[in-house]
């Protein structure tokens, strides 16, 4: 099988390398990909949308449908992870730690109940005390990462950034919290309900902006029609519409990243894991 695979790979690679002879040279301004549509985008986007970041403008305005279904794909990925892995059965073995003394209690009967108040802490089998240096550094860093994520979302129109990137940065700040403390700390602060609602709300914001444009008499996702709704310069309305869409994308991506992470590391039980 290995040899067979190697032969296939060599054949495919050889064919592809032969095919590169017809491709344009690296960085050639006259290559077919960089002449027809690309020139139109570069020369007309600023006057049509007043958004200087061409990538955001193409993503959220000219290819708005594509991005909307992309957000739906992300939402579906989160949903698929949830449906595949989520396990609501309580674990058979449960462990509690008596905080003042550090004594561990192991419950084998799933029916026994222990009121986990201030003295007892529900915990994992492979529990290790979190390292103080890691905890402190992450506690200081996480707010700055989140502020940066919000900046990336909000400035997507003017500088490199946008909803996908900002959402991923925000999600990774929450994942960092789960890694540096433990999963329970994250799940306690950011509940599953919160994440599910946010994932759906992100897609809903995107579709809602599109439907709002339809209700105002335009086409779906025609941001220019939203002008009467917002007290703003009418020329700037497309940038605002894109910002709204990017916020929706950012929220959905943030929530879905965290949902995927939590479900995979804890095998759907949301209690232990990294």
């Amino acid at each position: 099988m290995k040899f067979f695979g190697f032969v296939i790979v060599c054949l495919t690679g050889g064919l592809l390398l032969y095919g590169t002879m017809d491709l344009p040279d690296w960085g050639d301004p006259g290559s077919p990909a960089s002449t027809h549509l690309s020139d139109y985008y570069i020369e007309h986007i600023v006057e049509e949308t007043q958004v200087p970041n061409l990538v955001t403008a193409v993503l959220a305005d000219y290819r708005g449908y594509d991005t909307m279904f992309e957000t739906a794909v992300v939402f579906c990925a989160g949903l698929a992870c949830f449906l595949l892995l989520r396990d609501f059965r309580p674990g058979k073995d449960r462990y509690f730690r008596h905080v003042p003394t550090g004594v561990m209690l192991h419950f084998k009967n799933p029916d026994t109940r222990l009121v986990a108040g201030n003295e007892f802490e529900h915990m994992d089998k492979e529990w290790v005390p979190s390292d103080m240096i890691i905890k402190t550094v992450c506690r200081i860093l996480i707010p700055f990462i989140q502020i940066y994520a919000l900046y990336v979302v909000a400035h997507g129109d003017f500088s490199p950034g946008g909803g996908f990137q900002g959402g991923v940065i925000f999600g990774s700040s929450l994942i960092l919290m789960a890694i540096s403390y433990n999963l329970k700390t994250l799940v306690k602060r950011v509940t599953e309900k919160f994440l599910s609602i946010f994932a759906a709300a992100g897609v809903l914001i995107y579709v809602g902006i599109g439907v709002a444009a339809m209700l105002m008499g335009g086409h779906f996702l025609d941001y220019g029609m939203l002008a009467p709704l917002l007290p703003s310069d009418p020329g700037h309305i497309r940038a605002l519409g894109m910002l709204g869409v990017e916020i929706g994308v950012g929220i959905a991506v943030m929530a879905v990243m965290v949902i995927i992470y939590i479900n995979i590391v804890s095998e759907g039980r949301h209690d232990e894991g990294l």
């Binding site: 050639d28 301004p29 990909a33 960089s34 600023v46 200087p52 061409l54 990538v55």
Partner: peptide, 11 residues
């Protein structure tokens, strides 16, 4: 998408 002598696509 790269072109010689061109900058990032932000006007």
């Amino acid at each position: 998408g790269y072109k010689h002598g061109a900058t990032i696509p932000i006007i």
